[in-house]
Design a protein around this nucleic acid. Structure first.
Length: 537
RNA sequence: GUGGCCGUAGCUCAGUUGGUUAGAGCACCAGGUUGUGAUCCUGGGGGUCGCGGGUUCGAAUCCCGUCGGUCACCCCA
């Protein structure tokens, strides 16, 4: 090829990628997993501009970000040109992230938007950094956010319970996408932490408030440093050897508490009350503030475990996220030896900071660069005919397949969340799980002939009412095809919302067997998901 | 922004302390054998060694610059 010219203009800019047909298909494959996972979990797709006014990015964290902006201006007005010359800052910037746009979009229509807002978006982002492994100057990123609480909470405990639930829901989407792509919990973990927990621990071991930020920054870099240089740096910020020991002990204890199903189940039960048995906690943990915050982290882990993803979690004090606007739970999706695939957390003050009403929110972003590296390493990136098949698969239904409703009281709520997660995940067929060469994109994965159930788009209501009529109408307003009304484990009513008629296992081919009601249990012969998936197919 | 390593054919790479006309495998093209598009045989096209400058009788090889890639630091939204 004679294209080996030195002419700059014919090269793609540094840190960008030219996607030839096969590359574009690979990108499509990843994006489809992102999209399917978000849609099935009840998120709506939105989109924003790829460039914004520079001020938008100056509002928040302010520091390093501004130096890594690709700046943009039309060059058509003399004022613009003058501004660039004088300030060195163009009026626009290519977006380096989505959150400010999201906050802006939400703030602009806050009054008329549903609560909570569950939004996702995927597209290109730009950062003027030096490229390295897992990091380019233009990359694809997927953002998933839940903004706002369903209603005004009456007490702090209730509020916290909602927040944790939403945070768990966001983590569910992230894990769902990884599952979709064939990753398992031994490949990659969701490292979770809580900023407030770290701060309260630091306070209780005697780190003065003005040093807290410095210490957190140090902890963030800890695993990159040698133990000697860490010790030196720790001394510099006034962290004694004893402090480090008790800090490590606090996290070791916390991690132990999140190990194993039992502890998690207990934590889940405590989520509402936000109380941890004092007798069980160490001296440090017993200090009230630490106790409260550690129980928040525990409760969060419990929530994730309750929907079946406990295996994916790992409590990790090093995950603090550089971003200034994170307020509580933070998490990063990390595979051994790689940069984080995704990161996110709660940002309860940002919307207000952007000029909107005070609105708690939680979200994460996942980039395609590290994810693709990981899929390549694990042999999970399809090639050739497989790639074509993978991309040709039918995608998730934007119209909700099932609307899951808790019939009786708060006792059915955990069942509802669990069922929704199970419906979204689907059931893998025996044929596929027993095959040696498991291709995550294969149609056989959810084939019904050998016990599989396709993943479904399942939504839940965020209304506090227990009025079944109102809940059903909530489902109808969202155009759900079916409503699953959960009365108990093996007592699920199924309604066709289009015809407004009732369905029983008798109406489902191969499900008769004298079973009167559907079940929430995916292994049960009358699993409600099997009925819905069968009718939709 | 700072530093390390790398840049030879479409691809993966050889190329000895600087020394004839820069090589191999795969791929590609042509012809032959063969009853499928498989195997085997013969032949062929294709590189001014990323680019520019310097040292030298002589540079893919040494030096400087530059562009590109890669890895780490910084940062990580």
């Amino acid at each position: 090829m004679s294209g080996k010219s030195t002419n700059k203009s014919i090269h793609a800019p540094k840190g960008t990628r030219d996607l030839y047909p096969e590359d574009a298909l690979r990108r499509r494959y990843v994006q489809q997993a992102w999209r399917d996972a978000s849609i099935r979990c009840g998120f709506d797709e939105i989109a924003g501009p790829t460039f914004e006014t520079s001020e938008l990015y100056a509002v928040k964290s302010g520091e390093g970000i501004l130096n890594e902006l690709f700046q943009a201006y039309s060059g058509k007005s003399p004022e613009e040109v003058e501004q660039v010359k004088e300030t060195g800052r163009a009026p626009y910037a290519m977006r380096p992230e989505f959150t400010p746009t999201l906050a802006r979009m939400y703030a602009a229509k806050a009054g008329s938007l549903p609560k909570p807002c569950k939004w996702f978006t995927a597209g290109p982002y730009f950062r003027a950094e030096r490229p390295q492994r897992g990091r380019l100057r233009e990359f694809e990123q997927w953002n998933v956010d839940v903004i706002g609480l369903p209603r005004e909470p009456h007490n702090a405990g209730k509020w916290l319970a909602y927040e944790l639930e939403q945070t768990a829901e966001v983590v569910e989407v992230a894990i769902q996408s990884l599952v979709e792509l064939g990753l398992v919990s031994s490949d990659i973990k969701v490292h979770v932490n809580n900023r407030l927990f770290v701060e309260s621990v630091l306070q209780d071991i005697g780190v003065p408030p003005e040093r807290v930020v410095a210490v957190i920054e140090l902890l963030d870099r800890r695993q990159k440093m040698s133990s000697d240089s860490f010790a030196a740096a720790a001394f510099e910020v006034g962290l004694s050897v004893d402090s480090i020991t008790s800090l490590d002990a606090a996290f070791a204890e916390l991690r132990q508490r999140t190990d194993g199903q039992e502890a998690l189940a207990k934590a889940a039960l405590r989520a509402k009350g936000v109380v941890l048995g004092k007798g069980e906690a160490s001296e440090l943990m017993q200090k009230t503030s630490v106790l409260l915050k550690s129980s928040e982290l525990l409760a969060f882990c419990g929530q994730v475990d309750a929907i079946g993803y406990g295996d994916w979690l790992r409590v990790d004090p090093a995950v603090i996220r550089g971003l200034a606007y994170y307020t509580g739970t933070v998490f990063e999706v990390i595979a051994e030896g790689e940069r984080a695939v995704a990161g996110g957390g709660r940002y309860d003050n940002l919307i207000e900071l952007m000029g909107g009403p005070p609105t708690p929110a939680v979200g994460f972003a996942m980039g395609d660069v590290v994810l693709s590296l990981l899929l390549d390493d694990k042999g999970l990136m399809p090639e050739g005919a497989d790639l074509l098949d993978a991309v040709s698969r039918p995608c998730a239904s934007v119209r909700p397949d099932v609307f899951v409703i808790g019939a009786d009281d708060e006792a059915t709520d955990p069942l509802v969340r669990r069922l929704a997660a199970d419906l979204r995940r689907g059931v893998e067929s025996k044929h596929w799980s027993e095959s040696d060469d498991r291709k995550p994109w294969a149609r056989e994965r959810y084939e019904s002939a050998t016990g599989g159930v396709s993943p479904l788009h399942a939504r839940v209501s965020y209304k506090s009412t227990r009025n079944l009529k109102k809940l059903l109408s909530d489902g109808e307003k969202q155009f759900a095809r079916y409503a699953a009304i959960v009365h108990g484990e093996d007592r699920v009513q199924l309604r066709d919302l289009d015809s407004r008629s009732e369905l029983t296992p008798k109406d489902v081919p191969g499900m008769d067997d004298g079973i009167a009601e559907f079940s929430v249990d995916p292994t049960h012969p009358a699993y409600v998901g099997r009925a819905v998936a069968g009718r939709i197919a």
